[in-house]
């Protein structure tokens, strides 16, 4: 069964590229445009992995991550945080809040795909 990936980002063009990239790799993809939508889609769509942008309207990626990790039902969900701010403190904050990986924009598509696959246990 194909893994499900949720993409949460407020930049439409980034969403387009990520969506295309993940679909091409055979994942089932859903999209959220802000933090609140991301939380709602996690509950409804039940993804295996979440690509989560930090700077989003309504709820930031940090807040979403924190809320998800507070609920045991999402323990198996892998969270990859995406940020255009490359500061070390942000990386540390994201990991401390329970993110599994941290990717800085702009990213290499090959690396991102490899990382996603390894996190989902696909070799």
């Amino acid at each position: 069964m194909a893994h499900k990936i949720l993409i949460a980002d407020d930049e439409p063009n980034i969403v387009i590229s990520l969506e295309f990239l993940m679909k091409k790799e055979g994942f089932v993809v859903a999209v959220a445009g802000d933090g609140e939508e991301a939380l709602a889609k996690v509950a409804g769509f039940q993804p295996d992995l979440l690509l989560l942008d930090v700077m989003m309207p309504k709820k930031s990626g940090f807040e979403v991550c924190e809320a998800l990790r507070a609920d045991n039902a999402n323990a198996a969900l892998k969270i990859v945080m995406l940020t255009a701010k490359g500061r070390d403190t942000e990386v540390a904050k994201g990991l401390a809040l329970g993110a599994d990986a941290y990717v800085t924009k702009p990213f290499s598509t090959k690396d991102l795909v490899a990382k996603v696959k390894s996190m989902l246990g696909i070799v």
């Binding site: 930049e11 063009n13 590229s17 091409k24 255009a84 924009k105 702009p106």
Partner: peptide, 13 residues
Amino acid sequence: RTPLTSIRALSEM
């Protein structure tokens, strides 16, 4: 970085 992200991802693909 934000526009660069789209540019790079799409060009790579």
